[in-house]
Design a binder for these strands. Sequence first.
DNA 1: TTGTAAATGTTATATTATTACATAATGTTA
DNA 2: TAACATTATGTAATAATATAACATTTACAA
Lengths: 132, 132
Amino acid sequence: MQKEHNLSKNQKIIFDLIDKSRGPMKAYSILFNVQKKGIKAPLQVYRALDKLVEIGKIHKIESRNAFIACQNSSCQVSKATVFSICESCENVSEISNSKLSKYLSNFSDSSGMKYSKYNLEFFGLCKKCKSK
Amino acid sequence: MQKEHNLSKNQKIIFDLIDKSRGPMKAYSILFNVQKKGIKAPLQVYRALDKLVEIGKIHKIESRNAFIACQNSSCQVSKATVFSICESCENVSEISNSKLSKYLSNFSDSSGMKYSKYNLEFFGLCKKCKSK
DNA sequence: TTGTAAATGTTATATTATTACATAATGTTA
DNA sequence: TAACATTATGTAATAATATAACATTTACAA
């Protein structure tokens, strides 16, 4: 069960923007878009982003320095993320594949390290771009 | 079989530095370290890094903006990388697990997208840090 | 109502990465 | 070898991403 998080004002403004966006958004593009709502400084954006990532409402696409709303409606898996990224149009979507998730969550290697978190990014060409 | 790449002067200087380093190195730390060898500007570093990544001699740790020498001695798999990252001491190592690699290389989902590349980063605490 | 944690506001600055332009070295092919 | 193309280099400026430090306010639990 997902814990209910009451978003603060800035967190809500920024989450709503990302959630409505078609694709991943970058921090300074977010900043630009929320300036009319009174959020004026990068730090205000980054603080909200940090919190939203922490509670799993959004994810960071590490290879793109961009943020996307969680697409697993009740995402308790903010610590286990898999994305599909088109290298041509930069479309990103979150993959939810329970077999893959299980496989990765249970993965362990000879180092004796137990992993509490992972992030996987797949790259390729999406259908549209492939056929061009 | 890996294609033989003759590294250029700057590429060699930078690869040697990363290869000798204990852990991942960041671009500006690399720059600082090679200034005595005549590499003065960030762009010189980034250009060498780009090339070294492209040919698989090094990998970028996306979540850390840092670079590490490929640890699979004859790495033809620069397009299929898996890392283990300790969130406490920031130690990073490359995981080579053929079962996992196969599983990920063959992964496909309902989108019809064929993936040509992936990067997976596992996070946790290493043995040392766990016992502190 | 008092204490504490979380969130906000603001300025400055640190860190990471690229654009633009000029030149040189290397490799290929006629 | 001359001519051409490709790759690499040098340099300056600047763009893009992210954090430090400090002051204040809001939310909420004891």
